[in-house]
Nucleic acid binder design. Structure first.
Lengths: 228, 228
DNA sequence: TATTCATTGATAGTATTACTATTATATTTG
DNA sequence: CAAATATAATAGTAATACTATCAATGAATA
């Protein structure tokens, strides 16, 4: 149980921020509005100066919360993974049957995001969009190894580790559970991206298709092993 | 045959460059050295000024070949996909059996890159590294849709389309051939990235593992369909 | 042979970005 | 009320991502 609900309040590594944005009104406005703005103009076009203008605050005040926009992106995406991890744990916790559990997990991970009213200043739908379009930029950097050591990606890694365990529970003989877990998580984001920008490269056009595709992929692979 | 060998000389969309870098000595040095430099310091740290310094040329001269570093990245990655497409077509062309053909295709796409002496000024191994670490930055932009219309991603899309057809030939009933094709291509790059930076998230640590993993995934999924 | 033409190099200049530093002002708390 | 804290305002800096102009060179051509 100790790891269960590990991120309910969605606790984010202290090192990512200078001052906790949850601790003040300005901090919450920074989070709320940065989501809208990054979603709108993209991470490259986004600057603290523009954000300050939008929230009627000053650039220098935003720097008191985050060292730079890269750290802010790490904060937002960590929050997203923590939130998704909570959905995953909550929805699968009571399921005893390992196959049913995995099926549910794949559904949670690959379904389109729906708004969660529990966190009023965060728009999860737009945040999911940001994760689709910007997440890989947060780790495809030359600083990845030091930042990883600092623990900036723990929630993401823990999420995949949980998923990995569920795959393992279904078929302990399967040789690639971690790869399958990371492929489904990353692949799901990618299929949503393709749907919007390179539609000829995906078959997941209708709601539910991405879930069906990955469920099919996982269970044929795992069942085949069990039968073989 | 018309599309076969479509990219042997590795022809890249004219709109990506101002002046064809293949047409001059300086152009080739720009390509050669930019590969070394981006691999070394990363795309974010890379500038035309630094490149000019390294090749003993001037920043302004490089701008006569490429509008900006984003276009240069598009050029390099397009070249890579064209080169890989050539490998794919060449290696699978003579195979009649559809399953054997697909197996070979997965191998070509997921295996580690080896140096090709046919293109002396291009280091394919480093270029593959650049594709792993930087490719997604070339399309995760706000300009994606206009750039896609301009045809900046045709080689990449054609590559996946060929792969898609091979999957289809093995199992025409399978509902997600394009998704499977794009998942394997993108997923393979991702597994190589994980191996180096988040090793706990992958099982592909030894040479050949990535190929085995995706071959297993594809054939269990497709065979299951055929038997079901 | 002289010219002109294309390529490259050198220099300067601009707007923007990504900050840092300092000081002022407002608000909260002891 | 004093002190501490948070935020705002302003200024300044180095680097980036260019654009523009002009000079030097060398090759092709009249």
């Amino acid at each position: 149980m100790e790891r269960l609900f590990g991120s309910v309040t969605i606790k984010i590594n202290d090192k990512i921020f200078v001052k906790d944005p949850q601790s003040s009104d300005l901090g919450k406005r920074i989070i709320e509005q940065s989501i809208l703005m990054i979603n709108d103009i993209g991470f490259e076009g986004f600057t603290f100066k523009k954000l300050g203008l939008q929230i009627g605050s000053n650039e220098s005040s935003i720097y008191r919360y985050f060292e730079n926009k890269h750290k802010l992106l790490l904060y937002l995406t960590s929050w997203y993974w923590g939130w998704l991890e909570y959905q995953l744990v909550f929805a699968t916790n009571s399921i005893a049957d390992t196959s049913e559990k995995l099926k549910k997990a794949i559904e949670i991970i690959t379904r389109p995001t729906v708004q969660d009213s529990a966190f009023s200043h965060i728009n999860e739908v737009l945040l999911n969009n940001i994760v689709i379009n910007e997440y890989s930029k947060s780790y495809l950097t030359k600083e990845i190894d030091t930042e990883n050591k600092e623990g900036y990606f723990v929630i993401y890694k823990r999420m995949i580790e949980r998923f990995n365990e569920m795959i393992n529970a279904v078929d302990s003989e399967y040789k690639y559970p971690s790869s399958l877990a990371s492929t489904i998580l990353e692949g799901s984001l990618h299929q949503y991206f393709l749907k919007d920008h390179f539609p000829s490269l995906t078959d997941c056009h209708e709601k539910g298709d991405t879930t069906k595709y990955f469920t099919d992929l996982a269970f044929h692979t795992l069942n085949a092993k069990q039968n073989g």
